[in-house]
Every structure is written in structure tokens, then in C-alpha cells.
């Protein structure tokens, strides 16, 4: 039940917004995340954005994973 899907914000009107993933769009609420802007990715759970996905940290994690995959054994 704690599933949350990363979706891209494509419309904002106050705390109401529309988020999109794979061509599917949903009405979502931004009450918990002031400062979210168009194009940001947020985690959506039961119609509510619960966290902004931080692109810098996402890339940092992927870099770490790539460095592990590139290690020569």
C-alpha cells in the first residue's frame, strides 16, 4: 500500500496539479510540497505528492552503482 509512483508535474493551479507518467495523467495535490514546479518529478501516493524526486541524488546513486558495475574482478 505504500506504493508511490514518480510522475512529472505538467500543470499547476495552487495545490491542485496534473501529473503524468507514460502518457497517463492524474489529478494530484501538492499540499505537502510547496515550491514544486512544472517539469519536476514527484512521488504520487493516493493522489497526493509525498516527495519531490531529487535529480542530483538520483544521479549520485546511479553513479555509485555504475562504478560498482565497472569494477574489474
Amino acid at each position: 500500500m505504500c506504493l508511490a509512483i514518480p510522475m512529472k508535474i505538467i500543470q499547476i493551479d495552487g495545490v491542485q496539479a496534473v501529473a503524468e507518467v507514460d502518457g497517463v495523467s492524474r489529478q494530484v495535490r501538492l499540499d505537502l510540497l510547496p515550491g514544486v514546479g512544472l517539469g519536476d518529478y514527484v512521488l504520487i501516493h493516493a493522489g497526493l505528492a509525498i516527495a519531490k524526486v531529487d535529480a542530483v541524488y538520483a544521479e549520485e546513486t546511479l553513479s555509485l552503482l555504475r562504478s560498482l558495475a565497472d569494477e574489474v574482478y
Binding site: I5, P6, K8, D22, Y41, L62, L65, L68, A69, E71
Partner: peptide, 20 residues
């Protein structure tokens, strides 16, 4: 899907499995 597919990458799984 962004932030999902990258974190399912098979090549990267192999790397971390070796570390484990």
C-alpha cells in the same frame, strides 16, 4: 519510466551483486 527503469538496470544489478 524515468526514475524506475534506471533502477532496474540488469548490468548495474550484476555489479552490486558482486559487491554483496
Amino acid at each position: 519510466m524515468k526514475y524506475i527503469d534506471e533502477f532496474r538496470n540488469k548490468d548495474l544489478v550484476q555489479g552490486i551483486i558482486r559487491r554483496l
